[in-house]
Amino acid sequence: MKTQLAMVVDSSLCIDCKGCMAACKVENKVPEGHWRNWIKNDGVDFSMGETFSRMHFQPGNCMHCDVPTCVHACPTGATYKDEKDGVVKVDERLCIGCGSCIPACPYGARYRHPVKKIVDKCDFCDHRRARGELPACVITCPTKARAFGDINDPDSDVSRMLKDNKTVRVVNRESDTRPNIYYMGATAPLNWPVRAQAPTPIRWWGDWAKQLVWAVVGINALGVLAMLGKQLFVNDPEPGHESDSTDGGKPVETEETDHE
């Protein structure tokens, strides 16, 4: 079975220390004002009184979905799901920075790099994995809330965790992208992913622009075929020649010397 790198997160272990966010930012040189990962929370629960207030934290990042709507929104294929490890990546040289993929992600996992002016996102620390190291967020987490590995390898930690525990995935009802971050037991908040939608021009292109171009090209091709057919198979001698300077045209039946 193909490798699919994934995370299994026990969000009840998360203490919101922001270690994963800081580690990622340093490791991947994420510019000011942007993040490749996050810790969400469900707000403070005061139902047990102020003394026993509680809050649930939910770490996350790009979910490297099985149905990546971001990949589907990219015209050039600069954003692609790597067959080798199941990770959704960006080919920086092929990305023209059109940003079509950004609203196509339900999780807001993408941003346009303010200096490179191309899209940037979590790649499960591709460069660290190439050296045999874990992603920065995983290795940094002090409570080991994030587990990482190949869920298609039955011997991996994440596979065993998935097998032995009930897990949930956080999805938008209208855009189930089949994400590859699993949360152990239950997690919160759940209502934050948005509906994935490519920008209007990209949708119009697939909805009617491609068909319109084919229709126009097709009509002209039919015109060419009609002219070719007539030229090859119909004997249609020219009755006169076409010119007459006095009235800007001459009835074709007029007899006159043919100049051809």
Binding site: G97, P199, P201, W205, K210
Partner: peptide, 14 residues
């Protein structure tokens, strides 16, 4: 701003 870029792609193609 990426909106003009997205429109440019469609108009270029058409």
């Amino acid at each position: 701003n990426t909106a003009p870029v997205q429109w440019a792609i469609l108009i270029h193609f058409l």
